[in-house]
Amino acid sequence: MKTDSPFREIDPQSDHVLVRFEEEDLMLPLGENLAGALLVAGVMPFRHTPVSGAPRGPFCMMGACYDCLVLIDGMTVQACMLQVAEGMKVGMPSADRVHDV
């Protein structure tokens, strides 16, 4: 899941806080855009589609495409419309959610 990220911060401004993505602990910049922070941390993909299980990640970054969906507190939400908060637990809404249960 974690790769060498092509994304990097050019003017880091915020303190970093602990966020969990699936099984992994990440230090992400507090208050910054969640999708962006996950990209910098090398997270990819964000989810697998419920239709075919294909991997997906952020596409539009403006709340229109819904490819950045993640699972927070039992809800599928757009990572690109959220800000990093301390102790956030982020999961992947995976294909298994639909096909295996």
Binding site: P6, R8, E9, I10, P55, R56, F59, M61, M62
Partner: peptide, 22 residues
């Protein structure tokens, strides 16, 4: 639809909003 493909606007938003360069 592959991860790693985004709109150019998305890259610009990352820059404006989070100071993230690609």
């Amino acid at each position: 639809t592959l991860p790693g493909v985004m709109t150019a606007g998305a890259a610009q938003i990352l820059l404006k909003q989070s100071g993230i360069a690609c």
